[in-house]
């Protein structure tokens, strides 16, 4: 139940975050890019849900981003999914509930995804606009992802509290305190 809730919520949030990225007032004249929330969402998905959700977000999120950008279709899927897959494989060694750890993971994911996408674009023979000035948008992407990751964890926790199925807490009844009547 929780997994299906997470799946639906993750896909909806990916859809919305790509829309916000393209329709929100543009930061590009100043920093050369728009903040990207997909890596932050991927960190949350990788640390809190199954590997299939990671694959789904990698494919759908990348696909959505490519459909509204100049990227060749499918180029964002592999970097996004790969980062999530690596995090998911190491999630038992990560202090995932710590805000600072979430920031660092989001920062790393936000730096790695555009870097890997750039490498993939160059490998495919495309000519993306990269140069020394790309450090500025790259830093902005990493920072925005780092800042968004703890917020993503809080958002999901809150939404889970509102909508998701929760296990009933154990009642106050204790079998060892039961008064048994009659012969045993």
């Amino acid at each position: 139940m929780l997994t299906s809730f997470h799946t639906v919520a993750t896909v909806c949030l990916a859809w919305l975050s790509v829309f916000v990225q393209t329709a929100a007032p543009s930061l590009q004249p100043w920093v050369g890019t728009q903040p990207d929330f997909l890596p932050a969402l991927m960190v949350h998905t990788a640390l809190r849900t199954s590997v299939w959700n990671v694959v789904l977000l990698g494919l759908l999120g990348g696909f959505m981003l490519d459909s509204v950008s100049g990227n060749p279709v499918g180029v964002s899927c592999l970097p996004l999914g790969l980062v999530g897959w690596l995090l998911h494989g190491r999630r038992d060694f990560i202090l995932r509930e710590q805000t600072f750890a979430q920031f660092i993971l989001g920062f790393g994911a936000g730096a790695a995804v555009p870097f890997l996408t750039g490498v993939l674009l160059l490998s495919l023979g495309r000519q993306p606009l990269v140069g020394w000035n790309s450090v500025v948008p790259w830093t902005v992407l990493a920072l925005s992802s780092g800042l968004a990751t703890p917020l993503m964890f809080r958002l999901f926790r809150q939404v889970e509290r509102w909508f998701a199925f929760r296990k009933p807490e154990p009642g106050t009844f204790r079998p060892d305190r039961e008064i048994r009547r009659g012969r045993q």
Partner: peptide, 10 residues
Amino acid sequence: LREPTPWWRT
């Protein structure tokens, strides 16, 4: 819609 990535201008 505007371009979301830093390496294209569309």
